[in-house]
Nucleic acid binder design. Structure first.
Lengths: 225, 225
DNA sequence: GTAGTCATGTAAGAGGTTACATGATTAG
DNA sequence: CTAATCATGTAACCTCTTACATGACTAC
């Protein structure tokens, strides 16, 4: 349940509308914790109901209203409670690594394309995080500028250091992925026996089971719908 | 939907019971894709219904039966289809990194304990992956031994290389986390201004809004239930 | 007999994805 | 006037988590 804490953290900067939260959770903070608007609006409602944030209606144009959310005392307490918790580590679940583990069922050209895609993805991520780090350190990152303006000078070093720390962690992760993908491409090009490996199936193993399984398989398009 | 592909991959080694899959997905392969038994058994049922695997009842003791699942031709095709797909990259979502980004709401001693826990967790993971890598490379990893016995000799290099590649990626990730946590501990000890930062809340910002928000907050225990 | 392992389920609920849906405002 | 942006929702579906549940088999 960290979407809530990502939003509480953002609201310690200043009150925001759901829409503004949608934007930052799709852009910069989304590089730490991403969320679509379909998740954000309902969560804001729940947080308001629980008293963690308070909405104030603000006029917009002639007819329209927008709801500006501000964090409450309870919200700050919840953020601090979470901030001080020892969070459990999630189980390992990495689809790309799992795919790599069974590359013998792929083909060399496809595998190469996949690893190049991996490299491109994490290189783009690394660029984004490098850029964010630079902007945090040279003071041109707007969210941070506004945050520093709001908190006492003696806390600035810590605030800057922690924001940089988080993105530095992301960057290190990206760099590890980049190095891995490069090495994987080397491993791939050094291998010849790759290709059309035939797995032994229930069908080839057992004749009568085969007929049942494959006719069941043929029926599955209708049955699964 | 990769649990299915993790299991299809395992079943290309040999037919297994749900229980055996539970064990490997909690142990070695669980280091790539973890899953609890409550997810495995229903998924096996679905996969059987779709014709990707075929169950054979095998006697156990006097009264009991166990269901041994074998991959079918359709199952192998599905594994190959997935293996050749360009998988999308998931959105960024890292609770520990998010927590690090707002460490100014924590306290120095708690933050230190959290980072030490991070270090311990990923060091344990690194040990596990290092050990798996060693056993893959010196041929003492039983799952791999059995796999090699089943596939032609010219594919062995590739099979070994891909299994090693996957765990190497995990190891690199762990090492990046370890280095990050070490650096984070250094950053932490270099900072003094950390501690009881007070966020400006809706309560402190607006007097009349305050009264409404905090009385709402007081009511929330009953209201939220 | 009894503890540990083998073996297999169900169910409620949380969190996230994808798609569908609507309308006001502002800049050109 | 029209396109982009601002603004806010709902709903079906999927995956995963956590907890509850049961019973046979085997080694001591």
């Amino acid at each position: 349940m960290s979407l809530r804490h990502a939003m509480l953290g953002l609201l310690t900067l200043e009150p925001m509308t759901g829409y503004e939260l949608v934007k930052v959770l799709d852009d910069t903070i989304g590089m730490l914790w991403a969320a679509p608007h379909s998740q954000i609006y309902p969560e804001l409602k729940r947080m308001e109901a629980e008293g963690l944030i308070a909405a104030e209606p603000v006029v917009r144009g002639q007819r329209a209203l927008k709801r500006v959310y501000a964090i409450t005392k309870d919200g700050v307490e919840e953020l601090q409670r979470w901030e001080r918790a020892l969070l459990p580590f999630p189980p390992e679940r990495d689809e790309h690594r799992l795919q790599a583990a069974y590359l013998e069922f792929s083909s060399p050209d496809v595998a190469k394309a996949q690893l190049e895609s991996h490299l491109r993805h994490w290189s783009r991520r690394a660029e984004i995080w490098t850029d964010l780090l630079r902007r945090i350190e040279d003071g041109t990152y707007p969210l941070l500028k506004r945050r520093l303006a709001k908190y006492p000078a003696e806390t600035h070093d810590a605030i800057i250091a922690f924001k940089a720390l988080a993105f530095d962690g992301q960057l290190r992760r990206a760099e590890a992925e980049i190095e891995w993908a490069r090495r994987a491409l080397d491993v791939l090009s050094a291998i010849n026996g790759l290709g059309e490996i035939q797995a032994q199936t229930a069908d080839t193993a057992k004749r009568e089971a085969s007929r049942r399984a494959s006719s069941r398989a043929r029926r599955r398009n209708e049955a699964a719908g």
